[in-house]
């Protein structure tokens, strides 16, 4: 009896292990651009491990259905089913958020802090580490990546659906937005 039970549990777990194995196989394809565990090793590519699950699945679906512009990701996600997107979102959300240590010059940091305190902290937190439910953590995200994202928000050439974030970005001078990105990036220690 106990043995049958154990066998059943094992079989069940083996099934789950297989399903999880498959999502890990899929998630590993992301590592070549986003790093193992979603911790990026390149300044222009975002870390994605530890981003909130709903944020992840939401933006991937926006790309898939052309509701959001991207340079590369929109092409990649079109090959994934919604179930795969949800599973990837759950997988990366379970990874720890690893802020990457980055340096910036003191002047930029001061300017960035002012901008963030005045115009960004409400939704992202002063360090970027205390975001609203619909926003991702920015503390120790790659600054260069964030500058590029902010350029997308500021440019008329990109569809960026989050109205309030778009508004906040468009109200910022490019140099202030960039300094804010440096400020958030430098929170990784």
């Amino acid at each position: 009896m106990r043995n049958t039970l154990l066998a059943l549990i094992l079989a069940g777990r083996a099934g789950t292990a297989a399903a999880r194995g498959n999502i890990e196989v899929l998630a590993r394809t992301c590592n070549s651009c986003h790093g193992v565990g979603g911790v990026s090793a390149g300044a222009t590519m975002p870390s994605i491990g530890g981003l909130p699950r709903d944020y992840l699945s939401n933006i991937m679906k926006q790309w898939k259905y052309d509701e959001r512009s991207a340079i590369t990701m929109n092409r990649i996600v079109k090959g994934l089913s919604n179930d795969e997107i949800d599973a990837l979102a759950a997988y990366f959300a379970q990874q720890p958020w690893v802020p990457v240590p980055q340096k910036a010059n003191p002047e930029t940091l001061a300017r960035g802090k002012t901008e963030v305190d005045n115009n960004c902290a409400d939704c992202h937190g002063a360090s970027g580490g205390d975001p609203d439910v619909d926003a991702p953590p920015l503390n120790g995200q790659w600054a260069r990546y964030m500058e590029l994202e902010l350029q997308k928000y500021q440019s008329k050439e990109f569809k960026m659906p989050h109205r309030k974030m778009r508004k906040a970005a468009q109200q910022a001078k490019p140099a202030d937005a960039s300094a804010a990105a440096r400020h958030f990036g430098a929170q990784g220690r």
């Binding site: 590592n31 070549s32 651009c33 986003h34 790093g35 193992v36 990026s40 090793a41 390149g42 300044a43 222009t44 590519m45 340079i71 590369t72 790659w142 260069r144 990546y145 590029l148 350029q151 997308k152 440019s155 050439e157």
Partner: peptide, 26 residues
């Protein structure tokens, strides 16, 4: 296609290579 798309993609190329190298060798 707006120039900014080509510009950004040149930047992503560098991040891509760094991650690819790290994914293989780090």
């Amino acid at each position: 296609v707006p120039r900014i798309y080509r510009k950004m993609e040149a930047e992503y190329a560098d991040g891509w290579l760094r991650n690819l190298m790290a994914d293989c060798y780090a």
